[in-house]
Design a protein around this nucleic acid. Structure first.
Lengths: 205, 205, 205, 205
DNA sequence: CATGAATGAGGTTTCATTCAT
DNA sequence: AATGAATGAAACCTCATTCAT
């Protein structure tokens, strides 16, 4: 009943930052296989520690996801605000915002996958919080489109919502095919995608 | 009031359509929650039968997924072949192919979600088979783009692969926002998206 | 990823009622070691099945506890109501109620232990329900004491609440020492305890 | 504003009383929630230190329990010996012993809970030791009853063992309802309980 | 003296699957 | 054709304990 246990912290182990190793492993695995299909054990193993160590740093699988998720959204918002505040014609600001989000999404491909796929896995409370921020992002982006529309540089159709859903679908999809080691750099891809977006929006003749 | 007793096979009701009920339930649940997050029990309950019944019709969860998955891909290919064989300028065939895939994806939104998300859940053998077919679809679509390019109706850049990945990202993403009961019909959406694609491809000036 | 499993229901097994076996095992183990110290595995093993079987019958450990707990309280209340409705002087009804609860508690010693010890382990909702019923029991018992007091057969002190807590402490404690195979039968013990109670209550001289 | 840096030992504050803080926290938590349901982490947190600190003072959870448990039993025995050695009629010594144990149990309610509930959680060796001491307590108490019986001041039935189990059940149960901030002081309660005991024992006529 | 990292065992629960009926 | 019982693996998580610092 009161049995002696001879376990505990092992004599040493290498020093590297275990927390970071866990986050990195989680990003890769959640990104590649999805949240639901990745087990805590998978992550711990990939990070070279035991499950117990993971729970030393994160109180739940959900919290680990949130730790990855939340700053990503903040990055996107910060990047968008930068573009918004540029001194340039509306259409150029829009182009910048579009190429930036593609560039960062291609660069951080696993995080991008997690970002688009795993929202529903968060706790209700955290989902609400994230949705609020996502809506804010969406509205900021929509305002860019409206600005460009008002100065006549792009056409009036379709609605900003559809444009955004169209474009962000393409961004989201990067995770399925884009390879950073391939011939196209994230920056180039950003330009190609932004170009595609703008061409789709400008009035022909 | 002598009550009829029915032993053995339960009351009947829908009778033979248990299989269909199971497939419908699976489509909805896989589509909404994802394959990994949907349990066999969820599906059986939604279809109003027991797990045992499900295993009477399908040998595994994987097979149920495949049953949903495979014909969808065949539909897509058939639709694409139709567009390819149209008697019309390349650019019109391309436009048709694009609007068709959007229309069908918006109409069958849960299947679309499954189609894009659940490939990796199939058995290795089935994945290989599906990937082969998907590649075929991709190449057929690419050939449409090349045709339009050759007759000079669209510009030479970017590569067909990128165009396809861009566009199909947008299609895939429909599952996250499109509501068939909303103001835009699948057909209208098909036109909007196809228009966007073509505008992105035609040479400016 | 989609790995074949070769497990499931075993070829036969003996027919006896597994659900009852599980409940019996749980009663014994919860009663002897307490709810917190008894694992689901312990119960399943004692019942000769696997954990999975247990979860086929009960959705949680909490529900298993409740399944044991709730009817016990109902038994106690029914027994008490019987005594209350007897045609006899108040003091005799009180004596009967007291000896009955001792008798049943001694007979069902593990359930008694669970009854007194495990309330706090139930879910909040179930605790509220049980507490309401327990309070009802307490008040019915108190009314017996008041009746006897009003006809002058017992003294006015101490308050019924204290008397009840005093006496039920003794009942509760049976689980720590009473052995049904020992020299004292539950019925005899009921008489001894009831006698003790009544003597403590009657006016001296 | 050169800020003092304190490396190593934290700021001090209570300083040496960490051990006491741990014991106090453990008493409260074991008493309220039970040994099995209280974690080492709970105790450390309640005491405002880390688990490591706890293990600095106690080699195991079991030892912490024993540290609380053992002196309590010694207190009880000491108190009982005092009553035994009083110069007074046997029945008065019995009454004193009874009211004393009630008073101390009501005063130290969490310890009382631990005392009666957690014996089985100790290691085998310690259980043996405690059981020996408990038996000694029991026999001393029984001798008091026998003394009173021999001088004819109480009746011959029931056996001292049953009387003790009856009475100590009531004492044990205090933990479930007694509130030291309520209207009854421990001393008053001691008198009420002792009175109840003696009344139950004296010969009627 | 005390912390914080880490462990391995074991806890509750879920789940795809099997099979007698 | 369909049920319901049962399985074993694996999921998430808790926890007492150890040890370098």
């Amino acid at each position: 009943m009161t049995q002696q246990r001879r376990i505990g912290r092992p004599p040493a182990a290498d020093d590297r930052d275990v927390r970071n190793a866990l986050v990195d492993a989680a990003i890769e695995l959640f990104g590649k296989s999805g949240y639901a299909s990745t087990s805590i054990q998978d992550i711990a193993t990939a990070a070279g520690v035991t499950k117990g160590a993971l729970y030393h740093y994160f109180t739940s699988k959900d919290e680990l996801l949130y730790t990855i998720y939340a700053p990503e959204l903040q990055n996107h918002i910060a990047l968008l605000l930068e573009a918004l505040q540029m001194e340039a014609p509306a259409i150029d600001r829009l182009r910048k915002a579009a190429s930036d989000i593609v560039e960062i999404s291609a660069t951080r491909i696993h995080r991008t996958a997690i970002f688009f796929e795993s929202l529903s896995q968060l706790s209700e409370a955290r989902q609400r919080e994230i949705r609020r921020e996502r809506r804010r992002y969406h509205e900021l982006f929509a305002s860019l489109i409206k600005d460009a529309r008002e100065d006549g540089s792009i056409r009036a159709e379709p609605s900003p919502d559809i444009v955004i859903d169209f474009f962000f679908g393409a961004v989201h999809y990067l995770r399925t095919w884009y390879d950073i080691k391939g011939p196209i750099s994230p920056t180039e891809l950003g330009e190609i995608y932004a170009d595609f977006l703008i061409r789709g929006l400008v009035d022909d003749r």
